[in-house]
């Protein structure tokens, strides 16, 4: 259950940020989309909305919230499960509630507010999706949102970070069917996060050449992964000479997207927006460089040999 940010702006009178710190990580999320705007159905803006923040510690976002629920670290999944039971009036033991680090009153109040909302939204951040439980936490929250629709309108959406990572997700889905963690080594896309996801591939040493664009794994990945990147030929496209470029066999400087390279980027709610660059770069765009590398590869003899056009059953 998700929606575009314009829907939130126009309708959401109950907003929950879960495991995120928008005040510092997505500063304009409050003012442009979620909390402050006066809109069609919420003419008084902030006054017409209630904001609840669920996080493990007090961040700068607490100041903007009406209610702050400090969940015990690593207990998000438990809290969501308790809430799922409570909205359906299922029995919950005190021990189960105590485990979440919150009181019965706090939770009852939260449930009452959720049910009283006309249009509720959960925004969940890395604090939920990247801590213990990982995607299970996100799935549980999505289920809670789905189940809330028995009472009122409710949606949930991730607070995607980092530039155009949403665009990559969307494009891989329409071209390959899968959002990330893909292998083409049998000539068609296969998906297996944990096997084909980059950190796992690098830690196992399962690649013999890495092409890196718009990312700096040299600064963000665990040490064994970086060690493997140093061993194999690495090609980096980046507007700057980065940690990763320093260990690369080939570095190509490109124009930064949106500053001096034109194109499209997807917003976190999967709406594509055109970029309007302000500067002329002395460097080529990523698009041009990747296309030229691809065309150079295409000119070399096809390594695949004879294959059927289609498999009715995948192997």
């Amino acid at each position: 259950m998700t929606c575009t940010l314009g829907e939130v702006k126009n309708r959401a009178d109950f907003i929950v940020y879960w495991g995120g710190n928008p005040a510092e990580c997505h500063p304009r999320h409050f003012t442009k989309y979620a909390l402050m705007p006066k809109s069609q159905f919420l003419p008084r803006g902030r006054k017409d909305r209630t904001m609840v923040l669920v996080d493990i510690r007090e961040t700068k976002s607490v100041k903007a919230s009406d209610v702050f629920l400090q969940v015990r670290p690593g207990k998000d999944f438990e809290l969501i499960t308790v809430l799922r039971a409570m909205i359906k009036d299922q029995p919950i033991s005190e021990a189960q509630i105590a485990e979440t680090g919150l009181s019965v009153e706090q939770l009852q109040d939260f449930v009452a507010r959720m049910k009283a909302a006309r249009f509720g939204v959960f925004f969940f951040g890395m604090g939920l999706s990247m801590t213990r439980g990982k995607h299970m936490n996100s799935a549980a929250l999505l289920t809670l949102a789905a189940e809330m629709n028995a009472f009122t309108k409710f949606v949930a959406m991730p607070m995607r970070g980092h530039g155009n990572v949403t665009g990559a997700d969307v494009i891989m889905r329409w071209q390959t069917g899968y959002p990330f963690g893909i292998s083409f080594n049998r000539g068609y896309p296969r998906y297996n996060p944990g096997e084909f996801s980059t950190v796992d591939v690098l830690v196992r040493g399962d690649t013999d050449c890495a092409f890196i664009i718009g990312a700096d794994p040299g600064a963000t990945m665990p040490k064994p992964a970086i060690e493997h990147l140093k061993r194999v030929p690495t090609i980096v496209l980046d507007p700057h000479v980065t940690h990763t470029s320093k260990m690369a066999r080939v570095h190509i400087t490109t124009a930064p997207a949106g500053i001096s390279a034109p194109g499209t980027a997807y917003r976190m709610d999967e709406i594509p927006l055109p970029l309007r660059p302000a500067l002329e770069s002395p460097y080529p765009s990523d698009e041009e460089v990747v296309r030229r590398i691809k065309e150079t590869i295409l000119k070399k003899p096809d390594w695949m040999g004879e294959r059927p056009q289609m498999l009715t059953t995948q192997v």
Binding site: Q175, G177, R186, G187, Y188, P189, Y191, M310, L311, Q314
Partner: peptide, 23 residues
């Protein structure tokens, strides 16, 4: 996607998957 037919790429064709929601 995992259980459906798969198109294998060639020099002129891209790979893809069929099924309920084909690529």
């Amino acid at each position: 996607h995992r259980r459906t037919q798969a198109f294998i790429r060639s020099q002129t064709r891209r790979s893809g998957l069929g099924g309920m929601a084909p690529t």
